[in-house]
Design a protein around this nucleic acid. Structure first.
Lengths: 250, 250
DNA sequence: AACAATTGAGAGCAGTGCTCTTGACTTTGG
DNA sequence: CCAAAGTCAAGAGCACTGCTCTCAATTGTT
């Protein structure tokens, strides 16, 4: 698990043996929960089943985890962390100046993890689990690592003057529909992420971002149909290529 | 509910009063199920709750619906039907020759329905309900109406020679990754949908297709964050504009 | 060693999907 | 017209879920 961004009474390195044992049990619960999640899916995640696997009665688990939702939150953070680690590592493996290459590496990393961990991917990017609301204060940090990586790549390309062409400004044929609110919202995002990208490229970045996850979700969630489509790798590579162009990279 | 594409012992117009009563009760169950689905989500859909609303004991519902999965399937078909109706109507409202306009109308129709019916959208395009497998023989027909509409638009534009430019062939910079299998798969799709589009445009169509749903899913599933982003309409219009360009329309 | 905090077990409540039996009702055939 | 056949709702019951509460035992600390 990666560094969890403070906030909340962050439990630090356990000193007493009690704290050590407690941390160990909690980690075991998360580990078993992760396994159940991977096998049976989020909505079927059962605290009682985890307790059985832990060799303990169900009520005992509630000593370590407030309720089912809290376990889901722990698993959410856990998954965000693993995905973030893999994506950042994959991006770092490509030379800093190869912006399109870095983008493709990011896309492949996300897809690779998603295909390997469909249930956990569904927890992060699929339809929300009914009745569960992720606490923003705990998931916002780890949950934005991938989008930060993506925008960092595009922004670096922009600053380096390596963007293929200036895309059409936001006010184009559908100028009437483009509200001033959008410029305000984009400015807020630019501020928050410390970017230099102009509006048009920022909006295109959002499209590339959602498109990437749309393509992956279609594959992971089986919308392509069962086995009818075999060349998913090749199609995804094609999509990465086109999306890089949409972002202005290349 | 729209025409359900035969297959299965399609129950025709009920003659006897028994059949009439039975059909009425089944329709009531679907209606109540739809309401529960819209309010509480798919995974929380409870046959017992539907029975309560129907003013009947839980076991009685099993006379009309085999099990929870069957009700889910009925709701799936119901939702596909409604979405398909709305999309086709929206597309038909735009002149046949305005290909880009038809595409945008399709996108807006899908998004409008999705925002209005998030739980049902999630049932169709979100993460799969654990333990539930949609029976392909019953959902394949109604489930492909939107993609058929989309490909029909692009294909018509192609046949009319109205595609802005010939996009790069599939074998580009990432030629090595583009397998022969992809050409085979694309040919199968072209055959099945009766299209004339060349490989490159077909692949781009798939990207546009998944991108559209990626953008909508991000909005519907709340990945944008709560209220932090207000100009979703304008951003979506921008995305439609860019995606039309990706498809080769304009 | 004594104390207090922590922990696990167990019972219990309310909910779920689903099955089976039972009794009543409706439709149909002779 | 009446009985057989078909249909239906109700209820009990099983196994599962999340979660709470009490009680006893363990365990670390003083």
């Amino acid at each position: 698990m990666p560094a969890n961004n403070d906030s909340a009474p962050a439990p630090r390195a356990p000193r007493t043996p009690r704290e050590r044992a407690r941390a160990q049990t909690t980690a075991d619960i998360v580990r078993l929960g992760r396994e159940h999640l991977a096998v049976h899916g989020a909505a079927a995640l059962s605290l009682r089943a985890v307790a059985r696997d832990l060799g303990v009665v169900s009520s005992a688990v509630y000593r370590y985890v407030q309720n089912r939702d809290e376990l889901l939150t722990l698993l959410l953070i856990d998954a965000y962390g693993e995905l973030g680690d893999e994506v950042e590592a994959a991006v770092a493996r490509v030379p800093e100046a190869d912006f399109a290459g870095r983008f493709r590496a990011l896309g492949r990393a996300v897809r690779g993890w998603a295909v390997r961990e469909p249930a956990r991917y569904a927890l992060l990017f699929g339809s929300p689990v009914p009745g569960y609301r992720a606490p923003a204060e705990r998931t916002a940090g780890p949950g934005t690592r991938v989008i930060r990586s993506l925008t960092a790549i595009v922004d670096a390309a922009w600053r380096a003057g390596a963007l293929r062409a200036e895309p059409e400004p936001l006010a184009g044929p559908s100028a009437a529909a483009v509200s001033a609110q959008l410029a305000v919202d984009l400015a807020a995002i630019r501020e928050e992420l410390g970017l230099a990208l102009p509006d048009g490229l920022l909006a295109r970045g959002a499209l590339v971002w959602t498109s990437l996850f749309g393509a992956i979700s279609f594959e992971v969630f089986g919308q392509y149909g069962e086995g009818t489509f075999a060349a998913k790798d090749a199609l995804f590579e094609h999509h990465l290529q086109v999306l890089a162009g949409v972002a202005g990279l290349e």
